[in-house]
């Protein structure tokens, strides 16, 4: 029950955080691109729950869920949305580029597929030092059509590197449906062809995701080489705040909303988990978000005379 509650809390934090972000975007307090993860929370929470602090995470431009699940403080994530100096990237990254070295969160990468080779290199360093670490690399099914996906899988498998490739198949690469993008539909089979263990998982079931991640990370830590999980999921909201969603039927969204991963976990926790428990959880999460928003609003901005900082390292040669 405790473990389930932890998973529920993390998914709820992500869901409510993003609901608030959407409101703040409409109020013009958050700008730029904002890609919401609503509906996909079970993927980040289930996978990250199986990682150790010394493991590493590589994310995408849809990175709020990964960052929060990994433990990047919500205050720092919200401040980043506001472009404040207290943000987890000092306001230089924004929604798509959350970073946190302390949590070994190597950032949201906004070039589709661009994070995979980096994850391979992070894993190479661990392997060369003989450390039993795992690098979890998130990307969408759209990335599976990029050359970097194929290069990275081949290299990781060739060198038996400790990478957990997490393919979040939400069925749409922006507005392009899976059927219009992939000649062969079985992503796990595609990954298997590179000689790594790969299988599909119900990405709307956090317990199933966690179980798959546990099996995969155990194998990776034992020296079994990389694994790939195809996590079948769905984003309930538009690709970004600019997306009018002309490419899909509302009934499809409704069908998937019936499989909401948060509702599903709550159902599994009944009857021990009561309405009062749920109210308490929502209250706790709302308070955390309120605090994050208030702190972000009050935070300082980076002085403009610091514009060119961090282009190169600030050390004396």
């Amino acid at each position: 029950m405790k473990e389930h509650l932890d998973l529920l809390r993390e998914m709820t934090r992500i869901r409510r955080f993003e609901d608030r972000c959407a409101e703040l975007y409409s109020a013009a307090q958050i700008r730029g691109f904002l890609h919401l993860y609503v509906g996909e929370e079970a993927v980040a929470v289930g996978v990250v729950s199986e990682l150790d602090p010394q493991d590493a995470v590589v994310s995408t431009y849809r990175d709020h869920g990964h960052a929060l699940a990994r433990g990047v403080p919500m205050d720092a994530v919200m401040a980043e949305m506001f472009g404040k100096v207290t943000g987890c990237s000092r306001g230089r990254g924004g929604s798509m580029h959350l970073f946190d070295s302390g949590h070994r969160f190597f950032g949201g990468n906004a070039i589709v597929g661009g994070g995979l080779p980096v994850a391979v290199g992070l894993a190479l360093a661990h392997a060369m030092r003989g450390e039993p670490r795992v690098v979890a690399c998130f990307f969408g099914e759209g990335a599976a059509a990029e050359g970097e996906f194929h290069e990275a899988l081949n290299l990781a498998a060739l060198w038996r590197l400790p990478v957990l490739f997490c393919c979040e198949n939400n069925l749409y690469a922006m507005g392009t449906s899976f059927a219009k993008e992939h000649a062969a539909p079985d992503l796990a089979l595609r990954a298997s062809s590179y000689g790594l263990a790969a299988w599909a998982v119900d990405g709307m079931d956090v317990l199933a995701v966690r179980e798959a991640a546990r099996r995969a990370t155990e194998s990776i830590r034992a020296g079994g080489g990389p694994c790939l999980l195809e996590l079948r999921t769905f984003r309930f909201r538009a690709h970004s705040m600019y997306d009018p969603e002309r490419y899909r039927d509302k009934s499809e969204v409704v069908q998937w909303r019936d499989r909401d991963p948060i509702d599903r976990l709550i159902a599994a926790m009944r009857p021990d988990f009561t309405d009062d428990d749920l109210t308490a959880l929502e209250t706790e999460v709302a308070a955390e978000i309120d605090h994050a928003v208030a702190a972000a609003e009050a935070a300082e901005i980076e002085p403009v005379d610091g514009l060119t900082r961090f282009v190169t390292s600030e050390v004396t040669r």
Binding site: L116, V118, G121, M128, R129, E148, N154, L155
Partner: peptide, 19 residues
């Protein structure tokens, strides 16, 4: 392998991770 993007990216990752 002949995978310029992968091995340059792997170099970046290894550099980020202490090598």
């Amino acid at each position: 392998p002949l995978s310029e993007s992968a091995f340059v990216g792997a170099g970046i990752g290894a550099a980020l991770n202490g090598m």
